[in-house]
Design a protein around this nucleic acid. Structure first.
Length: 272
DNA sequence: CTGAAAACACCCGACTTGGT
DNA sequence: ACCAAGTCGGGTGTTTTCAG
């Protein structure tokens, strides 16, 4: 993302993705598909070294960095390009309603007495794992959804027809007081990565394929600070995935928990 | 057709590099 | 020297290949 010498030093990833896009783009297009093989071809045309990890090109534009300006400028007002998987080694740029899944700044916080075991907090290896552990030990998914639920497994990776390989950070299953069963796929992000609608779409698809009988409610989780966590819930509409709920939870150490915090916490916790 | 092995695809963390 | 962006290697699940 250099500012001065974009033309000369735009990185290989950006050059490649830009060329692929422009190869297929026509005025007014809202879907542009390409295959992995094209990455190799384009690198050759541009006389640049083929990156060794081709998948990382798509991956980085999906979750980490913004697309080159050339591509972004071809999105109509209020819309943005995302890169959707479209089966094995196939990808599609799709123009969707712009949606930045980021925590709202001025949102009220709910205090929760931090029940994360000290040892776990101390030795978490990375942000994402730390976040998942805090969600689990503090039953934040129960509190957020109002449903009693349990972690089924984490890092469920599987292959979906028509999409490709997908991965969900953690899966919870739950049951409400009327006996309905739910599945909650969780996407967790530390400070640096962004939540992406692409992943939420995949979570819905994963539910349909692997848990067709359960009610599917994808959740996004993001650290806003060390002990401040934002949770999001999504719904699937004809216009695409939309974010419907957002709550912020602050984990506070047990010795600063007032009776009031404790009471409100107990009220929010679903009965088991 | 079946099962095992090889190849492929993808994501993550860690290393490398280039700009300040 | 420090920081962040760019790149790469490892691990694991899926798909393909192929011998029997």
């Amino acid at each position: 993302m250099s500012k001065r010498k974009d033309l000369k030093t735009a990185n290989r990833y950006a050059q490649i993705i830009e060329r692929i896009f422009l190869n297929h783009y026509t005025e007014g297009a809202s879907e542009i598909c390409f295959e992995r093989k094209e990455i190799e071809r384009v690198a050759q045309e541009l006389h640049i070294n083929l990156p060794k990890n081709l998948g990382d090109i798509v991956h980085s534009f999906r979750y980490q960095v913004t697309l080159p300006e050339t591509i972004r400028s071809k999105a109509t007002e209020g819309r943005q390009w995302i890169i959707r998987p479209a089966g094995r080694s196939r990808y599609c740029f799709v123009l969707v309603v712009e949606q930045d899944i980021a925590p709202t700044s001025m949102k009220a916080e709910t205090k929760v007495p931090d029940a994360t075991p000290g040892l776990v907090a101390m030795y978490s290896l990375d942000d994402e794992q730390a976040l998942l552990a805090k969600l689990r030990y503090n039953r934040l998914i129960d509190i957020f959804t109002g449903i009693t639920c349990y972690s089924l497994q984490n890092h469920l990776r599987t292959f979906l027809a028509g999409i490709g390989q997908v991965e969900t950070d953690e899966i919870y299953v739950g049951v409400d007081q009327k006996g309905r069963h739910y599945v909650f796929p969780i996407q967790a992000k530390g400070h640096s990565d962004r939540l992406s609608v692409v992943q939420i779409e995949q979570d819905f698809a994963l539910c349909v394929s692997k848990f067709p009988d359960l009610i599917c409610r994808p959740i996004g989780a993001q650290f806003m600070g060390k002990n401040l966590i934002a949770l999001f819930e999504f719904e699937s509409t004809p216009e695409g995935v939309r974010w419907t709920e957002e709550e912020h939870y602050r984990l506070v150490s047990p010795d600063e928990v007032t009776p009031e915090v404790l009471r409100s916490y107990r009220e929010r916790l679903p009965n088991t």
